[in-house]
Nucleic acid binder design. Structure first.
Length: 620
DNA sequence: ACGGATTAAACC
DNA sequence: TGGTTTAAT
């Protein structure tokens, strides 16, 4: 249930674009001989022919459905071509499809704000482009309208009115004329996608995300559907409640069962107050709105995913029953995650901040079997070995809780690791990069991040770090013994002693930030007491700090992370004994800085001259 | 305890 | 916060 936003004042043109049976198309592009044949993509095929995750339209004619097994599909469609998802480290590897999805996104992002909604779906806000077209070259002025545009489906056309007539109506209201422009633009975009990638897609064009999403699913494959405002009541009036996004689950079935609401239109019979009384303030308002086709959700300008994750299930007999085996799989998952994080860093200059693991398990508990396994998270450090180490600690901690003092039989039925809280790498005025650029190197002043990660930059490559696999598993303690090893610290983040932060290419003086710190860890070592020995507040991390203000008392900041992690040094006061305890690369930078500064009278008050903290996250 | 692997976001 | 739950594909 998204926040129930009021409808925006100005009319918008929103499109939802959905790739048709995407994985199948990707495979058919790789293997053209499969084109036109009934095809499905399966992952794993040892057990009953594997599970179908995408079904081509030729195969759908035979009644092949997603969630069938390969064997079942063969039964109803003996000639079906079953293509297997690539496997890496014993698990399905979806990178092929992720990359193909990115190709499409970069094409679709050309005409307006674009939001990657999933691996094969995007939302577009085409308002500006449509307004502009309406001013410059509205459809009725065009010599000939794109064939693809003419094939649009327009909901609620009047008796025998052709699509072309609708598109070119000069007496239509502003809203409809905008949608017509949207249809032209989307047809162009779809043609572009087809030309550049060979993928077909379906699309919906409407005044908001909800309606656009709904529309894109009405005519498939390779078609587009326009939803004029006037058609909304009929559309929603006949739409089964569970077909509406967000109502396909419990909320939808509750509406159906408890209120007898069969279609979205049926919601019109309830007042907003009643819906709020039943489902809460926000959800109630949201329901009242969608019944009327009102939806204010904005198209977020975001082309990249907000998190990365990978996981695997171990059903039935395959359940993992020993620490060494869990460690093996966890290492594999971490390896994949690490590769993807590194690729994101290289390609998109983004750093993830949080590592999360989740597992499902079962254990004997009396007669029954329990299955809640706690999720755990910690600050994320880059490097395959580090991620593996941290994930393992998280798992141990989760398992301890899971077993709850009782040592008994246990089995893990699913494992996953993910990385979230991803921010762009800093480009700000106070970044390490800028610091080196200005004070030390012949680096150009406007040194940008892309320069930083140039080819000569030292960076941790996945091949450099060997993951520990089963060989190391023999060191492991028995399950019921590992209660003591962590010294009461629950989070791996609190226990790491190595404080590496970045790797430095000394030749160029370039820093690539491959790891990050967690504030709490360091606040312990370096209480954030600031300038002149005034009482240090432990709440330093919440103190807002303006970079430009630093001018009065000469201090230097190193901003490690995007507007978040900051090391601050007082010019007169840096204590060399403390400097020695800093992470090596920071240490080097501080010393370089000290030399280049005109410090006259260094003080020696341990802890008083350096603060390290996270700046508050700035909301835009 | 076979609808798997991912993503996102609300909720507490 | 971190951790859990819901939902979608």
């Amino acid at each position: 249930m998204p926040i129930a936003r009021p409808a925006p004042q100005a009319p918008r043109v929103i499109a939802h674009v959905d790739l048709d049976c995407f994985y199948v198309q990707v495979e058919q592009r790789r293997r053209p001989e499969l084109r036109g044949l009934p095809t499905a993509v399966v992952q794993y095929n040892a057990w009953k022919g594997g599970g179908l995750i995408a079904v081509g339209y030729e195969a759908r004619k035979f009644g092949v459905k997603r969630s069938m097994r390969g064997d079942e599909a063969k039964m109803v469609c003996p000639d079906i071509q079953l293509v297997q998802v690539p496997v890496a480290r014993g698990k399905a590897d979806l990178n092929l499809y992720r990359d193909a999805g990115s190709e499409v996104v970069s094409i679709l992002a050309a005409k307006g704000r674009c939001e990657r909604a999933s691996i094969d779906e995007v939302y577009l806000d085409l308002t500006a482009a449509a307004e502009q077209m309406l001013t410059a070259t509205p459809p009725d002025t065009l010599q000939e309208i794109d064939e693809e545009t003419l094939k649009s489906h327009v909901l609620g056309l009047q008796n025998g009115e052709s699509v072309k007539q609708w598109l070119c109506r000069t007496d239509a209201d502003h809203l409809d004329r905008l949608l017509a422009c949207g249809a032209v633009i989307v047809a162009e975009l779809r043609a572009e996608v087809l030309k550049k990638t060979s993928f077909t897609c379906s699309a919906g064009i409407a005044h908001n995300k909800m309606l656009a999403k709904l529309a894109s699913g009405i005519h498939k494959p390779a078609q587009q559907t326009v939803v004029p405002s006037s058609s909304v009541p009929d559309l929603l009036g006949s739409l089964p409640i569970n077909k509406m996004k967000q109502l396909g689950g419990k909320l939808g079935s509750s509406l159906q069962k408890e209120l007898g609401v069969a279609t979205v239109g049926d919601l019109l019979h309830f007042t907003e107050e009643k819906l709020q009384e039943l489902y809460g303030w926000n959800t109630g308002a949201w329901l009242w709105n969608i019944a009327r086709g009102i939806n204010g959700d904005e198209v977020e300008g975001r082309l990249l995913p907000k998190s990365h994750g990978c996981g695997k299930t171990f059903p039935g007999q395959q359940a993992l029953k020993s620490l060494s085996v869990v460690k093996h799989w966890l290492n594999g998952l971490c390896e994949e995650l690490s590769e993807r994080l590194q690729a994101d860093l290289d390609k998109n200059k983004r750093l993830a901040h949080t590592l999360i693991i989740h597992a499902d398990g079962s254990k004997a508990q009396g007669a029954l079997t329990k299955r809640k396994f706690p999720s755990k998270s910690c600050p994320l450090r880059y490097g395959t070995a580090k991620i593996q180490e941290d994930a393992w600690k998280l798992f141990e901690s989760g398992l301890r809780e899971f077993l709850d003092l009782q040592s008994s039989e246990w089995a893990v039925t699913s494992l996953s690791v993910s990385a979230s809280k991803i921010f762009p790498v800093p480009t700000g005025t106070n970044s390490i990069v800028k610091y080196f650029g200005e004070k030390q190197q012949s680096y150009s002043q406007t040194s940008e991040v892309c320069d930083v990660y140039g080819e000569d930059t030292t960076s941790i490559s996945s091949s450099e770090i060997s993951g520990d696999h089963l060989s190391e598993a023999s060191d492991l303690q028995p399950v019921n013994h590992f209660g003591e090893e962590n010294n009461g610290c629950h989070s791996p983040g609190m226990t790491h002693q190595t404080n590496k932060c970045s790797t430095v290419n000394r030749e160029k003086g370039v820093c690539s930030i491959l790891e990050h710190f967690h504030p709490i860890r360091f606040l312990k070592h370096f209480p954030p007491t600031v300038d002149g020995g005034t009482s240090g507040s432990k709440d330093e991390e919440t103190e807002s700090f303006k970079n430009e203000d630093a001018g009065t008392s000469p201090s230097h900041e190193i901003q490690v992370d995007q507007q978040r992690e900051i090391w601050r040094f007082n010019v007169e006061d840096v204590d060399l004994s403390i400097v020695k305890e800093l992470p090596p690369e920071i240490q080097q930078e501080v010393q370089t800085w000290i030399k280049s500064s005109k410090r006259t009278n260094p003080a020696k008050r341990p802890g008083s001259s350096i603060s390290h903290y996270f700046a508050p996250v700035k909301k835009s």
